[in-house]
């Protein structure tokens, strides 16, 4: 590398500082709001840091007293975990055989093209019949119904990721095992799947994050604590249900915690998953 001039160094550090500020400031502010007393948040000029730190809202939202605002929030947290978790697992289970088949049988590759093509369909184009079908089956406002609907988003996406994952595993390994007399499923179980574990993990994580983030279907298809997810609960809070901005911020922090932790810890995996899929898909 060529030596950098002093001016260039200053420019780079200034730009880096600006970038850090832009990325961090809103997130830090979300947290500060969640621990500021209501009076500080309505002050003019605004208090950027509370005089007394107030964590009580976390207690309010995570309270398990029956028939309270906290219980309603915890229920939505639970619903989000269940729906996102089970939808991801089902999506992966479907994506593994399908992804492998497409990866090893190029002649049917076009079918994956169609499957991925559905990813661009706007949810509004499916919403009305899905609503009517769920109503007919009695699956509105149920975790099962929402899980099934989430497959519209997760299944194509995970299949795509799994396919590019299998592409990276040499066929020769499978062929060798088969020559030794192993059947297809044995080969897959012993050779392919262990090698595909990382990509399975990445796909599941992506699926989970997508489902955790989903709002539109949840807004339409759930109505109360039995199935309402976190995103809808937060939109309700922000839409005028509470006037304490701090409480809204607290709900935001709690909802952001799982994906942010996943993001920070698994960053490398997530990015390589995205770029691999992106380039080869």
């Amino acid at each position: 590398m060529a030596q950098r001039s002093l001016a260039a160094s200053i420019a780079i550090y200034a730009a880096a500082l600006l970038l850090a500020l832009v990325v961090l400031a809103p997130i830090v502010w979300l947290f500060v709001m969640s621990i500021s007393p209501a009076a500080d948040l309505a002050a003019k000029p605004l208090h950027w840091w509370p005089e007394t730190v107030d964590f009580s809202r976390y207690g309010v939202l995570l309270s398990s007293v029956p028939n309270s605002a906290g219980a309603a929030f915890v229920a939505s947290l639970y619903n989000s975990l269940i729906v996102a978790g089970s939808a991801s697992v089902i999506a992966i289970l479907i994506a593994i055989p399908a992804g492998w088949a497409v990866s090893r049988t190029p002649s049917i590759g076009w079918s994956l093209g169609i499957v991925i093509g559905t990813y661009m369909l706007p949810p509004v184009a499916l919403a009305v019949p899905l609503y009517m079908a769920l109503a007919y089956l009695g699956l509105l406002n149920s975790l099962l119904g929402l899980t099934l609907v989430y497959l519209t988003i997760l299944a194509p996406f995970t299949t795509w990721l799994m396919k590019s994952g299998f592409d990276g595993i040499p066929r020769e390994l499978e062929a060798a095992a088969m020559l030794d007399g192993a059947g297809l499923f044995t080969t897959l179980r012993i050779i392919t799947l262990p090698l595909a574990l990382p990509v399975m993990g990445t796909s599941a994580l992506f699926a989970f994050l997508l489902a955790w983030d989903e709002f539109f279907y949840a807004l339409l298809f759930t109505s109360d604590q039995r199935a309402k997810t976190l995103t809808v609960a937060i939109a309700d809070l922000a839409g005028g249900r509470v006037s304490d901005y701090g409480l809204i911020a607290t709900a935001g922090v709690l909802a952001a915690l799982p994906p942010v932790l996943v993001g920070l810890l698994m960053q490398r995996v997530l990015i390589s998953g995205l770029t691999n899929g992106g380039v080869k898909g």
Partner: peptide, 10 residues
Amino acid sequence: VLAQGSGGGY
């Protein structure tokens, strides 16, 4: 209105 479709709605 949306909950109308669900048997066990409100």
